[in-house]
Design a protein around this nucleic acid. Structure first.
Length: 212
DNA sequence: AACGCTATCAACCGCTCTCGC
DNA sequence: AGCGAGAGCGGTTGATAGCGT
């Protein structure tokens, strides 16, 4: 009853500073999660989804705002090649950045320069049959800033990777990118890890991230 | 100064996934 | 096993700021 009433009077549009404050206080007191309860009990006339989004994208501690650094930009490009439009996964590798921000940044800044086709068109279709034996690379060549060199050229070329081109896909993976963020790659559950051959993954980056 | 166009980004929508019953 | 609710994700929309004419 209470719930239905609230749902019918939900507020939309931009968040006001007072609303931010209420949400922030509520989450700090009660913790994240249960977003429907948050919307019901905090007094905010917002849907649970809206509360969650606002918290996640703006109110959460350690959110980094402002322009993307060159490293971040490069990482986004490379991760997008690897993961496609898996914005939450990409954002998970960029400390302080949110999926929404990464997505917006890609669509406004990178998509036009890096991909002639719609971003959604080259989301890689990953499956177990893909390249069971990925090309190995000398571990010495990994995790260096070398990978960042000539990124614009790289962008021109390999951002256009055809998802059908399985071998190309894995060659992109094993290119030595991710200098500063390499260690972040394995620190949390990865829903796609079971999909990717774990050996390929390990060989590609030469790190399990456990030795952070 | 006024208008139109473009770029940017916050927020919403709809779908899928996960989990508890 | 099946169902429903809640959570999460990616795509899209809409407001508005900035810029050019």
């Amino acid at each position: 009853m209470e719930r239905e009433e609230v749902m019918t009077r939900l507020k939309k549009g931009f968040w006001q500073p007072e609303e931010d404050l209420i949400l922030k206080k509520y989450v700090e007191t009660h913790g994240e999660g249960n977003w429907t309860k948050v919307s019901l009990r905090s007094g905010l006339m917002r849907g649970g989804k809206s509360c969650r989004l606002r918290w996640k994208n703006y109110l959460r501690p350690n959110i980094k705002r402002g322009t993307m650094s060159e490293d971040e930009k490069d990482l986004i490009i490379r991760l997008h090649k690897l993961l496609g439009n898996r914005w939450s996964l990409i954002a998970g590798r960029l400390p302080g950045r949110t999926d929404n921000e990464v997505k917006n940044y890609w669509n406004t800044h990178l998509n036009k320069t890096c991909s002639p086709r719609k971003a959604s068109d080259h989301r890689p279709k990953i499956n177990h049959n893909l390249c069971p034996q990925a090309p190995m690379r000398d571990k010495d060549s990994q995790s260096t800033s070398e990978g960042l060199k000539g990124k614009d050229d790289d962008c021109e070329g390999s951002c256009q990777a055809d998802p059908r081109d399985v071998h190309r896909f894995y060659f992109d993976i094993e290119s030595p990118a991710l200098p500063a963020y390499n260690a972040l790659f394995f620190d949390e559950d990865e829903p796609f890890l079971p999909i990717l051959d774990s050996i390929v993954w390990f060989e590609s980056f030469g790190s399990t991230g456990e030795e952070m």
